[in-house]
């Protein structure tokens, strides 16, 4: 699996606190049994009117097409655990999300897809969002080694849980193989733990 060390690209600001996963991907798109088309739907109801005409939304603006870094605010990705939310962002082109804070499940889901979810201070996020809004062409660098985001002379510190960072840097973010390696220990554990069949 690939190691995720640096992400470079333009950044799209999605301003607002408590942007929940129902807003990122409305539930009706969860009816599809594969993730393959999720890239068409992020923020769908905020981007399109019921008749299909476009609304004002950063994901609709020409200058942010092809952006790879999403800049959010507080409690980004709260609500439903649906992986469809990060899947839709990643399949749209997002490779890293930087925000003031994340809902737990969302941040974990991002990393499972090889996409860092990085936390920065309120002031720093405001600076990044301002830069991305005023100069949408700016190329940002997310550096997981230095734990920094850099752009146009701006350098800000970001954080993420060390274990998740390691998983990305080492290329072990797809965890199934890691877990499978200990199957024998797992069997021993299972034998001594309670079972839902009611047998003690």
């Amino acid at each position: 699996m690939s190691k995720i060390v640096n992400i470079q690209g333009r950044a799209v600001p999605v301003v607002g606190d408590d942007i929940d996963t129902d807003r990122i991907i409305p539930a009706r798109y969860l009816k599809e049994i594969t993730f393959s088309r999720m890239g068409e739907y992020p923020f769908y109801d905020e981007r399109f009117k019921p008749d299909g005409t476009k609304k004002e939304h950063p994901f609709n603006r020409n200058e942010y097409q092809g952006a790879s870094i999403l800049l959010g605010n507080v409690n980004f990705g709260c609500g439903s655990s649906r992986e469809h939310a990060p899947q839709s962002l990643v399949r749209w082109g997002i490779r890293a999300v930087v925000a003031e804070s994340f809902a737990e499940i969302f941040a974990g889901n991002c990393v499972m897809l090889g996409t860092p979810a990085l936390v920065a201070s309120k002031e720093d996020v405001a600076q990044l969002q301002k830069l991305a809004a005023e100069k949408p062409g700016t190329v940002f660098t997310v550096d997981l080694q230095a734990m920094e985001v850099r752009a146009e002379g701006l350098t800000i510190k970001v954080t993420m849980p060390p274990s998740r960072r390691n998983a990305l840097l080492e290329g072990t973010w797809d965890s199934t193989a890691l877990l499978l390696a200990n199957a024998t220990t797992v069997r021993a554990k299972a034998a001594v733990l309670p079972h839902p069949s009611g047998k003690s």
Binding site: S81, E83, G108, L113, S175, T176, L179
Partner: peptide, 12 residues
């Protein structure tokens, strides 16, 4: 958990 984690629990 998310779907990739559902995969992990199913598999391991």
């Amino acid at each position: 958990i998310g779907t990739s984690q559902v995969r992990d629990v199913l598999a391991t």
